[in-house]
Design a protein around this nucleic acid. Sequence first.
DNA 1: CTGAAAGCGCTTACAG
DNA 2: CTGAAAGCGCTTACAG
Lengths: 338, 338
Amino acid sequence: MASTLEEVARIAGVSRASVSRVVNGKPGVAPHIVEAVTAAVAATGYVPNRAARTLVTGRTGTVLVVVSGADSSLRQWGLGEVLADPFFARVAGGLMGSLRPRNIDPVLMLAVSEPERERVVNYVREGNADGVLLVSAEASDPLPGMLTRAKIPVVLFSRPSEPAPISYVDVDNHEGAALAARHLVARGCRRLGIITGPVEVAGAEDRLEGFLAAARRLSMDDVATAAGTFSVDSGAHAMIQLLAQGVDGVFASNDNMAVGAILAAHEQGLEVPGDVAVVGYDDTIAALMCRPTVTTIRQPIEAIAAEMARLLLDVIDDPGMPARHEVLAPELIVRGSA
Amino acid sequence: MASTLEEVARIAGVSRASVSRVVNGKPGVAPHIVEAVTAAVAATGYVPNRAARTLVTGRTGTVLVVVSGADSSLRQWGLGEVLADPFFARVAGGLMGSLRPRNIDPVLMLAVSEPERERVVNYVREGNADGVLLVSAEASDPLPGMLTRAKIPVVLFSRPSEPAPISYVDVDNHEGAALAARHLVARGCRRLGIITGPVEVAGAEDRLEGFLAAARRLSMDDVATAAGTFSVDSGAHAMIQLLAQGVDGVFASNDNMAVGAILAAHEQGLEVPGDVAVVGYDDTIAALMCRPTVTTIRQPIEAIAAEMARLLLDVIDDPGMPARHEVLAPELIVRGSA
DNA sequence: CTGAAAGCGCTTACAG
DNA sequence: CTGAAAGCGCTTACAG
């Protein structure tokens, strides 16, 4: 069916080794051989067989992109729901996009249960991928540890819950939340509130701390807090609690909850940002699906993704490399809600 | 590093052939051999090398999931944006979820430019995947044709623009739009309007025709129409035009536009559904990110995905199989907006 | 600069 | 039921 190196060699009248060299762009091949091979490749429509190549080189040219978590919040979700979450969609898409130009193929997986985690480890142990790019949603997630123990090249999005010898790229959540606090105070808010994310998410805690610290520094010691779970509904519920405490400036730890908060404010007949200002986090599409549009903290997803890909490729090339970290800066995007 | 069949055979004291049989669960192996091999596998932590297996079997156990289009509307998007679109996220996720239980690995790709389309074809010609599950967003998309010409097993989501010997699974768009029309009329709307999708999307045209036909059958001959592009903003713009024509019941060809329509109505001081009722399409997360929540037409994505996977596996097993089609029924989901 | 040959790790007739 | 052997399609020392 598909033609092979052998066939191309025969037609070009050269050895298989020469065809291999030309096809892989190796230097030091006589021009007339390059020409003959090129012609034969064109004539046959030859495409190298990846399995054969992988078998001998030990490299797959594939990287696993996995969204993982412990068993709690993500558990009831399928990959469809996770992808449908605007934030994960941006991250997964960014990661996959950053791999393409480097000519490596991304395979996407979700791992929120033990069998799924084992599947991830197995997948690369079977030689299907050279390493993994991991977006771990929860601090208690065992996958990062499993991967490093299996000596699988891996780079995380977000710092691991406990210090570990793993390379990662992160955004300064502390600073992002501080940006939100300063913006709210600068526009005149007198009573701040925050809708937190799930405690088991490391970044969510950082946002809470960062917000409180920045508020304190601005002499706003009494910040109202309400817990959310990153969903639109949880944002609405939390907002009702905050409103009862008389807040006029709210920071929601992600955009979904900011949308929920705005909807809840409207339902109580309040204007946003007139009566209460709202700042979100992530700058996802959700921030634009709402009136007013949501002022939010943008994570430089594309830069993160590019950095993760670069790091992983380095680790794959040199598995003994010491772990490296990169922390990028978030950015305030001012829109209608604050 | 990783152990091989050879090593397991040596430890178990049997031939490589026997190890292979046990590992692959082939019948007719003596119990004591199964036992010895099982123990040796456990002791070594043996995992079969996929490249080697693929090389000899010709099967990869991988399927390509591609979202494609011609060069227009999707062109400026990266995979991140496409995944972030609630509809594609649901479809891609559903497809990937339906493959997992069948033990086949999905690789996700976006193909909206010529190089990307060629990459898709090449990917499977290189032997990286056994077939492709294609979500083609535009009727003029050349990819389905390219694939069948290359004799690559493929199953489409949505009927191809022109009759072609390709298997596909679709939802009855005509009927879905009719459900919307009947619901609007049943709740007392007197003047209907429709926000259409891009003409180059086959399904969008079916929805328009279905809506008009159903309306006509209910003696509503004069339906106002306005064009949209499936984005929130386009829905808002279209809504303004429809409102100027005095509509009190609007069918938006997807949820994003329904959200835009509702926002636009609110901005004109109108109540939804009191002054104007709105029905969306797709039942994506967008329908829940809005107050009122959006009454919409649900496509049974999970069933579609499962069906596509099943069909593709059949085609892969029997490439000569005649093309098959499956058309599933949509469902009306009544929420707050109509 | 080029080619003959070994070998990557498996599966599968084939013979016994 | 089991094993020896061939072969899948490549790449890469090695010798020339």
